[in-house]
Write a protein that binds this DNA or RNA. Structure first.
Lengths: 248, 248
DNA sequence: TCGATTTTGTTCTCACGTTCACAAACTCCT
DNA sequence: AGGAGTTTGTGAACGTGAGAACAAAATCGA
């Protein structure tokens, strides 16, 4: 009896195709944990084992997995290989996704050399930059190509995912052109808020924001002593002189 | 953190010094938006303007700001400079935070050269690596130093924040040593779940996970046609043969 | 076969986060 | 001065997520 098929017999609105976003964000973590267990030669794991490996609590893990189906065995646990495949399939990494990276500066170089891509369902098909000085440079086993070639590359390789590693300035323009070329998922490393049409997913990775969040908590750990004695507002303490107009 | 705190006060508990985590994560975005407005010479902005610039809706922005205090003027809006300072102070970026980067590979190089550090309250005081071949290399205006020097650097420079850009393997060990050296906030780029003692904050940036989240949504956009016809489970369709033991 | 044991899948409850909607507070114009 | 127009700050409703707890389902031993 393959448990993978019949999902229709739910008791209460199984929400056939609706996995909570918070759960989706954790599935890759579970996938990684399962891969690690598999590499260690472990064939079966309980929700407790998995949860520990993934850094969550077991109740949450079980609930997350229950959205995918009933892949465990009560009294036993989860078969590592089987569950790994199911999660990989649900996420979509059993197929290969073509990825382009735009902006081959320091970060673009680093990502281009990142080995984690190929091994997990993603294939970098092009490195693009608008700077003629960079075009032609060999990075890893790819050559940097001109950003103007985006359209042909995108349609030839069926590129769905684009990574933006340009500075903030050109990011929105790059984004627009990616969308125009048919890219419908964007991972943005540039420190700007990009706007995209409906149907395009965007995720943001921002070093500066992460550090500031840490700083906030760090400041509170440093005790309120320092915080209490920081009144050096200079001219800013004055009430705002309302005057200037507001741009759109 | 401290699990037993008196949370059972009033109906809604003002929580004098407790800004919701979701709000904290957005404050840096507002800060950036305000800086952009300021650079454009705009002196006053409404919640609507700010919300647009930050990519959120205005009600959320107003509620977020209300946790900091009452810094706006009804009928007018917010004074850009004034609010910018208040948010910067609340986050803690009016002071300088010393940062060490551990693991000077591709990504470490990229971060070391990232200009966004200095401009926003963070100062990279050391680049560390355990590889003797890297030690001594000049990166930006710093020289890579031996990871063994961590303790003296940390105490000399009062380092509170560490960035881990090593491979997955050594990451936990590096993390332990950072904590041991007095670092209480860690930004982890290595693809592993790090465990830290109470009182240490950790945030994770994971390219692979972000891509997988995008892939999940991409797969669903591609229509269920492709999904319906993917039954190539090979040997995995067999019921799991329960047998192997489970490691801790 | 039957009971003891293990572990999943799910229900229930509470906390957190988002959005709506509106009174309060301010400016501007007559 | 007073009314019209703006925009903030916040109370209330709603939705999502987390965790505790437990019934259901499986294995194992006698």
């Amino acid at each position: 009896m393959t448990p993978a098929r019949s999902r229709r017999a739910g008791t209460h609105t199984r929400t056939e195709r609706g996995i909570p976003e918070a759960t989706v964000a954790r599935l890759p973590v579970y996938l990684r944990a399962l891969t690690a267990l598999s590499d260690s030669g472990i064939a079966t794991a309980s929700s407790e084992d998995l949860a520990t490996a993934a850094g969550v609590n077991s109740a949450k893990l079980r609930k997350d997995l229950s959205y995918l189906g009933s892949y465990g065995t009560r009294g036993v646990g989860y078969d590592v290989e089987y569950l790994r495949y199911q999660i990989a399939r649900e996420i979509g990494v059993t197929q290969d996704w073509a990825v382009v990276i735009v902006g081959i500066g320091n970060l673009g170089h680093a990502l281009a050399n990142y080995s984690g891509f190929g091994t997990r369902g993603f294939r970098v098909v092009a490195l693009l930059d608008a700077d003629p000085q960079l075009v032609g440079e060999q990075v890893g086993d790819l050559v940097v190509r001109d950003f103007a070639e985006l359209d042909e590359i995108a349609s030839a390789e069926n590129v769905a995912i684009g990574v933006i590693t340009t500075p903030a300035g050109p990011a929105q323009d790059v984004c627009d052109r990616l969308v125009n070329a048919g890219v419908t998922s964007i991972l943005n490393f540039a420190p700007v808020v990009l706007s995209v049409p409906d149907g395009v997913d965007i995720r943001k990775v921002d070093l500066s924001i992460e550090l500031q969040i840490l700083a906030y908590h760090e400041q509170r750990k440093s005790g309120e002593a320092a915080v209490a004695g920081l009144p050096e507002l200079s001219e800013l303490t004055d009430l705002p002189s309302v005057g200037g107009g507001v741009g759109a």
